[in-house]
Nucleic acid binder design. Structure first.
Length: 765
DNA sequence: GTGTGATATCTTTTT
DNA sequence: GATATCACAC
């Protein structure tokens, strides 16, 4: 270890070796934060601390995995595997599986994801006869979620007049009622959502002193990564667990706090020294990742924020290249410019595809970029977006697993009761729902004794329901008999799911089959993994108890996985596309940040308050500091958003970068000699171009060859041409604005109704 | 009860 | 342009 300590600078060494007492490490971007955390764990182990006494909490699975791997690299897997290292959610889920019975939860409780939660809220709205247009499920859920993040229970929420007032103003006075129902329903279904994992963990520590004591004893050393992103619920759990030994080390960077929308409270890190007056604070300010250019440009940005802990990030790295700004006139062109730049850089600098990352504010932006990369045959890989576990076919199969593991899981029941179609439709389901509400039983329970609970079913329907419930019950009985894979494959076959998927021989259908197979393979891997020794919770001792790798164990592991970054070998050398949020903690030689436009980045949603704008700015800071060698920024003056073309001004963040770090914009588009002079020229120039564009579209309009005709010019009687349907004559036009439609008679295909927004019609002479 | 097509709404960001 | 929901025909 003494050898290893040499690999650290002075501040890092101190942060690693101050093992006892509270420690806060303020780690600037690229200053070796993960390194400090991993070395600290290794150091503790070397000092003779038992791995079972160490708890290391991270935010993402990715971060947890990386930390684990690095610790293994330092001390070997023998020691490292027994350290409790994982995300807040996964660690607390693990504890709740053991202790949850105290709160009335079985150990096989289900974890609801956001979709489950939303669909549950929809059901509740139906029960309460509330309008889902007013009580938008997503909005209601986020209200409930932020209450729970702040440890406000459903009962407290309902009783709180200030909250009630807010909900009344928001025109959703019944939110408290929904919250109560939601809570009750989850409990009945033996389910917890993401926030419940934190909320219930707090209940456990608050109401059961012996449990608190036990885990205080156990976790003698606690480390928290990304402390600036903790919400109140997380903060309090950590505080309670650490209260006894106060061997707590938090690492974070207030400048990189980007999860405020999820309830993260930047004050948690700003107040650390108030919570622990004798805390030692270390600042890591030397950046080892990026060039001087990047570090300084990023500093010039973050300096605009008011709320922050003072620090000065610096680097000894080379000067580096100026930041480039690419200006495109459309999102398509932006994609092309970025793809071309990747291509050229690859040629000139002889680097790998994996040296490039393209970062954006919203997932929706990936499409244009993808198309351009494909055109140039540049392999890429997308993180997030529609991740593996969010795909329909995967969720379907998992829903079967879920119901088999926990028959009370109503959301799983709803999902699969009639998929594949087995003649149990809406009306039948409503009857079951109703009976379940009356009897207080779960849907599955009611369905299992349908004749007893549900009135007015015909015999055909009853036998269909019975067939389904006996099938699930049979699977359930084999849960502890078969290993995970044996049971999983049985479920996939006997349920008819595989047959259903195989019947679809389109490309998409085939890929669904492949995805399902991939999931089954993952179950297989899990089943065949060497028997891990499970530690005894009381003593931390490894017991060699026979643990079959059963399906419920698999579901516990898989429940909190969201990204399927299965680190495939053939996935390695690819350009990476992801949101900036997803990029946190990662680094790449070349980083593109695209879509730097007002209303996109910073997002429209953030323009209201200073605090939100500051969060967007921190997000930009995070994006910039992912880069090692060079940053390329881009924006498009027009972009398709929700089906419509929109005009955009360049982002204010472009103006905020000190000019001396920016390569002078290449002359483009405007031939009139009005290209940006300097300083705020960017903004002015774009206004000018906007005017020009407007002029062109109204004055010359339809004369532009090959271009789409503005909908206003489509009138009854005129001849038009459609991309696919060919020439035709407009019969009638109705509606206005984005809803304008036309009835057209095409020579080739006959009469069609077209939504002009999409139809791309052209006038023919 | 099922399947098809029109239609409304949608977009932050994640465990 | 995609996806959840709705209306309508079988």
């Amino acid at each position: 270890m003494s050898q290893l300590l040499k690999e650290l600078n002075e501040a890092q060494q101190l942060a690693v070796t101050s093992s006892d007492g509270p420690v806060m490490v303020i780690a600037g971007a690229g200053s070796g934060k993960t390194r400090v955390l991993t070395y600290r764990v290794a150091y503790l182990l070397e000092q003779g601390v038992d791995p079972f006494n160490i708890l290391a909490l991270t935010f993402t699975n990715k971060a947890a995995r990386e930390m684990k791997e690095r610790v293994i690299g330092l001390v070997g897997s023998q020691e490292a595997r027994n350290v409790w290292m994982g995300t807040f959610h996964s660690i607390f889920a693990r504890i709740l599986r053991v202790e949850g019975h105290l709160l009335g939860f079985p150990s096989n409780f289900t974890i609801y994801d956001t979709d489950d939660s939303k669909s549950l809220i929809k059901t509740i709205l139906k029960d309460l006869s509330l309008d889902p247009k007013i009580y938008v499920p997503g909005a209601v859920l986020s209200r409930i979620s932020s209450a729970k993040s702040n440890l406000i229970s459903a009962e407290e929420y309902k009783a709180n007049s200030a909250i009630e007032e807010q909900d009344r103003i928001a025109n959703r006075p019944q939110t408290g009622e929904i919250f109560l129902h939601y809570k009750t329903r989850c409990f009945k279904a033996a389910a917890m959502d993401f926030d419940d994992l934190l909320f219930n963990m707090n209940l456990l520590l608050r109401d059961f002193p012996e449990v608190l004591f036990k885990y205080q004893q156990k976790f003698r050393y606690i480390l928290v990564d990304e402390y600036q992103d903790t919400n109140f619920a997380q903060y309090l759990i950590v505080k309670k667990l650490a209260a006894r030994n106060e061997n707590i080390c938090v690492v974070g960077d207030d400048a990189q706090s980007i999860y405020g929308f999820r309830g993260a409270n930047i004050q948690n890190i700003l107040n650390f020294r108030k919570d622990y007056p004798d805390a030692k604070t270390f600042k890591l300010e030397q950046n080892y990742r990026s060039t001087k250019m990047i570090v300084n440009a990023a500093n010039s940005i973050i300096a605009k924020n008011k709320d922050q802990i003072f620090k000065e990030v610096w680097t000894e790295n080379e000067e580096g290249k100026l930041i480039r700004i690419l200006k495109a006139n459309s999102d398509t062109e932006e994609g092309n410019m970025v793809a071309n730049a990747v291509f050229e850089t690859k040629m000139n600098q002889h680097c790998q595809n994996s040296d490039f990352a393209i970062l954006y504010r919203t997932n929706a932006q990936s499409r244009a970029i993808e198309e351009s990369l494909r055109r140039l045959n540049i392999p890429y890989r997308i993180y997030g977006g529609l991740s593996f576990y969010k795909r329909k076919e995967i969720k379907d199969l998992l829903a079967y697993f879920r119901l088999v593991v926990n028959p009370r899981d109503d959301e799983a029941f709803n999902r699969i009761i009639n998929y594949p179609a087995r003649g149990i439709g809406k009306t039948t389901l409503e009857k079951i729902e109703l009976a379940a509400g009356v009897s207080g039983k779960s849907l599955f329970e009611v369905a299992s004794a349908a004749t007893h609970y549900v009135k007015g079913l015909n015999s055909g329907t009853i036998s269909k329901i019975e067939e389904f419930t006996t099938m699930i019950a049979a699977f359930h009985q084999q849960l502890q008999v078969l290993n995970a894979y044996e049971l999983a494959i049985k479920i996939a076959r006997n349920s008819g799911l595989l047959k259903e998927l195989a019947a679809d021989d389109t490309d998409e259908g085939q890929s669904r089959v492949q995805n399902t197979e991939e999931l089954l393979n993952a179950v297989k891997d899990f089943s065949e993994k060497e028997q891990t020794l499970f530690p005894d919770e009381e003593t931390g001792e490894l017991s060699a108890a026979e643990v079959t790798r059963t399906l419920d164990k698999f579901m516990q592991e898989v429940a909190l996985l969201t990204d399927a970054d299965s680190d495939d070998k053939d996935d390695m050398n690819k350009v990476v596309l992801m949101t900036i949020h997803a990029a946190k903690g990662l680094e790449f030689p070349y980083v593109f940040i695209v879509g730097l436009e007002e209303n996109l980045f910073p997002s429209v949603m953030s323009l209201q308050s200073r605090a939100d704008i500051e969060e967007e700015r921190r997000l930009f800071y995070v994006a910039l500091t992912r880069a090692e060698k060079q940053v390329i920024l881009s924006y498009a003056e027009t972009r398709y958003r929700w089906g419509n073309m929109t005009m955009n001004e360049p982002s204010r963040f472009l103006d905020e970068i000190e000019e001396s770090f920016i390569e002078k914009p290449a002359r483009k588009i405007s031939s009139s000699g009005l290209t940006g002079k300097s300083g705020d020229g960017l903004r002015k120039e774009s206004v000018f171009i906007k005017k020009q564009l407007k002029k062109i579209s109204t004055a010359e309009g339809p004369a532009v060859q090959g271009a789409e005709t503005p909908p206003e010019l489509i009138q009854p009687g005129v001849e038009v041409e459609h991309e696919r349907f060919g020439k035709g004559k407009v019969l009638s036009v109705e509606g206005s604005g984005p809803n304008m439609k036309a009835t057209v008679f095409f020579a080739a295909v006959g009469q069609k109704q077209l939504l002009l927004k999409f139809a791309k019609l052209r006038l023919v002479n």
